[in-house]
Write a protein that binds this DNA or RNA. Structure first.
Length: 427
RNA sequence: GGAGGGGUGGCCGAGCGGACGAAGGCGCGGCGCUGGAAACGCCGUGUGCCCGUUUUACGGGCACCGAGGGUUCGAAUCCCUCCCCCUCCGCCA
């Protein structure tokens, strides 16, 4: 949520920066600005009227205790109250509309973010590793997985429909190995491991920015008014919602493994095959809660921590800085990590690391207090470290051999009882 | 699912129609005591919003005792609805 005071004070600048995400947001901002002006006007009148009513009411009480009831005053009070109630109703409507609109305005991009329309304007920051060269035609991971008997899309569809997968045998064990490997790695780098609920209340989703705007993307348990988490970012960042943390406790580092559930509405026909886009996938998520002064250095460190996973798995990747038009709703700045995928002959996203500054903190009233008692909103950051399914896909594709077998990355072998290669099942 | 008990300031906890932004304690800040500290004593210490000014401060106003509605001239306090938490029983991995 943007700071209304900032909108009032630096209207033109906010409008200009917001417009780099798309013109429509500038128009939204215009409505917010006007609504805010009107709201304050009505609020002022309401408060004046209420002050008058309070004063006269006290006066009435005093008289009554002295045994001097004043029927005229009583009538006057009733009339005042009736007028006040009308005005209050108007104020309530204005506040509601203003608040709803405000929750639908995305975060301001950081000044360093390249201005652009979409994915094609993102800026490559660096590359690591060499894409492998094959002297045969590399197969896509779903073919490899099915041949190896570790991925079963057909049976998944039977029980749950499209965009689900069953992993079996070494496929299932690889997921467990990857999760453990990632959590161990991040644990050593100072992240506290947390295990969190996968069903959350609407307030939590408002806090991180998925609601009210992106209801369509979520699975909802209607009866209980709970949502399946689309990312661990939601429960983890909300751990401290409405809290006032102590300055000396910051920054906080968390790492969580959770499954993630996404409806993928509007992505029909995209990535219909394989592990890339599923309704349910596994992810290890990193979350940081920091002071404003340090959030950008913390972002760089967060990216480095996510990169470390790919480096240890020896998977070639690149780091991309998202442009304004491609930036997520809550993010002020985002780096994506993209891993090399031979069958696509391109890099594909396995991690997205964002600094949300105080955008989420404001929505969830997450603050910290300095030694002298001043309170400020925290900054929140999150990043995948990493998306497990896509990492598994990348391993299958990058480590494949001509006979369809797949070599296990060295870093993972201790987690798989020393197994160093998966061979196709004989049929 | 059944029965009961609760939700009050950063935290604990009292209040149960006006004198209540709310006792007391803890915590925090200041001062005193001390060689220094602990203990002790005294003083201070909520948040949000709106308006104004001499605009990182001060003054005024309004709101806030889980949320929303109601009764009343007046509600933390009475009534209704909802939400949440806890305990016991049932069910259950």
């Amino acid at each position: 949520m943007l700071d209304l005071k900032l909108i009032r004070k630096n209207y033109e600048e906010v409008r200009r920066r917001l417009a780099t995400r798309g013109e429509e947001y500038a128009k939204l901002l215009d409505r917010v600005y006007e609504l805010d002006r009107k709201k304050r006007e009505v609020q002022k009148r309401v408060e004046e009227l209420r002050a008058l009513l309070n004063r006269k009411s006290k006066e009435y009480g005093r008289l009554k205790r002295e045994g001097k009831e004043d029927e005229n005053l009583k009538r006057e009070l009733s009339e005042l109250k009736a007028r006040l109630q009308e005005l209050e109703e108007e104020l309530r409507r204005l506040e509601e509309e203003l608040n709803d609109l405000l929750l639908r305005i995305p975060n301001l991009p950081h000044p360093s973010v390249p201005v652009g329309r979409d994915e094609s304007d993102n800026r490559e920051v660096r590359r690591w590793g060499e894409p492998p060269k094959f002297d045969f035609e590399p197969k896509p991971h779903w073919e490899l997985g099915e041949k190896l008997g570790i991925l079963d899309f057909e049976r998944a569809a039977k029980i749950s429909g499209s965009r689900f997968v069953v992993k079996r045998g070494l496929g299932a064990r690889l997921v467990r190995a990857l999760v453990n490997f990632m959590l161990d790695l991040h644990g050593r780098r100072g992240y506290e491991e947390v295990y969190v609920p996968h069903l959350v209340r609407p307030e939590a989703l408002i806090g991180t920015g998925q609601l009210p705007k992106f209801e369509e993307d979520l699975f909802k348990c209607e009866r209980d008014d709970l949502y399946l988490i689309p990312t661990a970012e939601v429960p983890v960042t909300n751990l401290h919602r409405e809290e006032i943390l102590r300055e000396e406790d910051l920054p906080l580092y968390y790492a969580a493994y959770t499954p993630c559930y996404r409806r993928e509405a509007g992505s029909y026909g995209r990535d219909v095959k394989g592990l890339i886009r599923l309704h349910q996938f596994d992810k290890v998520e990193l979350v940081k809660i920091t002071k404003p002064e340090t959030s950008y250095e913390e972002l760089e460190k967060l990216v480095a921590d996510a990169e470390r996973v790919l480096q240890e798995l020896e998977l070639p990747y690149r780091v991309v800085e998202l442009c304004t038009g491609d930036l997520g709703f809550s993010a002020a700045k985002t780096y994506d990590l993209e891993v090399w995928m031979p069958s696509y002959n391109r890099y594909r996203e396995v991690s997205s690391c964002s600094n949300c500054e105080d955008f989420q903190a404001r929505r969830m009233k997450l603050r910290y207090k300095t030694a002298d008692g001043k309170k400020f909103f925290c900054h929140t950051l999150n990043g995948s470290g990493l998306a497990v399914g896509r990492t598994l896909a990348a391993i299958l594709e990058n480590y494949q051999q001509e006979d369809g077998s797949v070599v296990i990355p060295k870093a993972l072998r201790p987690y798989l009882g020393g197994i160093d290669v998966i061979k196709p099942q004989k049929d």
